Simulated scan of single mutants.
Amino acid sequence: MTLQHTRDVALAEWWAGAAVHWSTLVELGPPGFEAYCRVSFPVGDVWRPESEVFDDLASLLRQHTTDAGRECLFALWDGWGDIDGTEAVGMLTALSDTGQWFTRMFGKPRPPQVPPAFGATIMGAPRVAIGERQFLLFRGPLDQAGSWGARPIAVDWPARQISIPNLTWPADHSWSVAADAGHNTMGIGGSRRLIERIVLHPRLDARHVTYPEAA
């Protein structure tokens, strides 16, 4: 099962249209929540995949989502190189598959051109615009976060991996998660109880933060 793309970018207006500097919106989320925190992605000797950290966070988010918010919205930054597709993407994907990269790179020809991650309908769809960022919008259950339904690079090549969601929120707007490209943190807004549980989670490197003043 994968997320479903939606052209209804108005669903993101409550976030994208907030009167806050765009960098705050994509790094920390929209204003108005009781509390906020940042979760850092571990680096160095304690490195964990971003998807694993997101899954730990999602396990708490599910417990603070009402029935009305079971469906979530997921925004994917369209600046990831893997979305447009290039020959370099095929090279990097092969090299990242450490168990079979030599066979894939030298045992068979590389694809002459890596196709875009999505078909023309999605690639040409309206974007959610927040400052210097443009996002494709998807919807579905929280446990499918990151399952974009992207097309494979080529037959017998590794599955195309893009990113964890860059913006995530439930239909009832009870919390938000922002994971901007190029930053090593996620910004989360929600109830005080949710934020406190995130900060105390033993597998999450989280800290309380104060939301900036509105512009």
Score class of each variant (00 low, 15 high):
L136G: 03
D78T: 03
L73G: 02
A68N: 09
G99C: 06
V128L: 01
G79H: 13
G131Q: 08
R110H: 14
L137E: 02
G90R: 04
A88I: 02
L92K: 08
F135W: 02
T86S: 12
F118L: 09
R110S: 13
T98N: 07
L73D: 02
M91L: 10
W80A: 07
A120P: 00
R104V: 04
F106T: 09
R139S: 15
P111C: 06
F118H: 09
V128F: 01
L136I: 09
A117T: 11
L137C: 06
Q100D: 13
A129L: 02
G119E: 07
M91H: 07
E71G: 00
E71Y: 00
G107K: 13
T121C: 05
L95C: 10
F102E: 09
M91K: 05
G107R: 12
M123I: 00
G119R: 05
L142G: 03
K108N: 09
V89D: 07
D82K: 03
D143K: 04
P115R: 12
V128R: 02
P112T: 15
G79R: 15
F74E: 08
W77F: 13
G107A: 13
W80H: 12
Q134C: 11
P109N: 15
L137H: 01
L92F: 05
V128G: 01
A125P: 01
W80I: 01
F74Q: 05
L142P: 04
T98A: 11
P126K: 06
L92V: 02
A75H: 05
L137M: 12
M123P: 00
